[in-house]
Amino acid sequence: MKFKIFTLLAALAFCGSAAAWLEGGGERDEALDLEPDLENGLDVYEVCSGCHLPEGWGKKDGTFPQLAGQHRSVLIKQLADIREGNRDNPTMYPFALPRAIGEAQSLADVVAYTEKLPMNPDNGKGEWPAGTPEFDMGKKLYEDNCVECHGKDGEGSAEKFYPKIHGQHYAYMLRQFEWVRDGKRRNANPDMVEQIKSFSNKDMQAVINYVSRIPVPKEDLAPSADWTNPDFD
């Protein structure tokens, strides 16, 4: 219910320009309100696992993002955006269609399944470890520009559809950040586009490097990078 209220408020507040960021109604709200069935979520996830892997960890090189642990609301929004043509991703597109993953109930089920998967303890990181000037530069940029929405530890906000970004692969985040900045990611939050418009490429690399190195809470991580998803035995 709170999602519906937020969506309504968002629609009222940003009428027009922000429609591409968060359109209310339809299967997005429907999926958020449905009681998820994890067993069906696993069945639906099988098609996704071809690229995102059974563990939901994606690829370290950033080709495919990590989905494990991501807020359900965020993934419902992205899936709905891709299938409605509001986010361009030609490779992903057919997999977001009802033919591949079903209707609203299946959306609810599959994202509930991935949200519970333990996260990759060895995500792809930028090249600058703590102690380097670039790391410090990224940390400062993060604190000045990103904390308000993505949180001090990169945890995002399920309620506001802000993605969890800690633990995500560096190369994936860098690509998405660049697309948000340059207008290619059409479903981006206009507040973010505005916030990062003056970022240079170096700023972008530094801040994403920092984010890729924010520690993920231990309880959200798989016991080791060799962990395999037992549901796929």
Partner: peptide, 12 residues
């Protein structure tokens, strides 16, 4: 055509 869908993975 739809080759953009495949282009996204060809670096692999």
């Amino acid at each position: 055509g739809l080759s953009a869908a495949m282009k996204g993975v060809m670096h692999l």
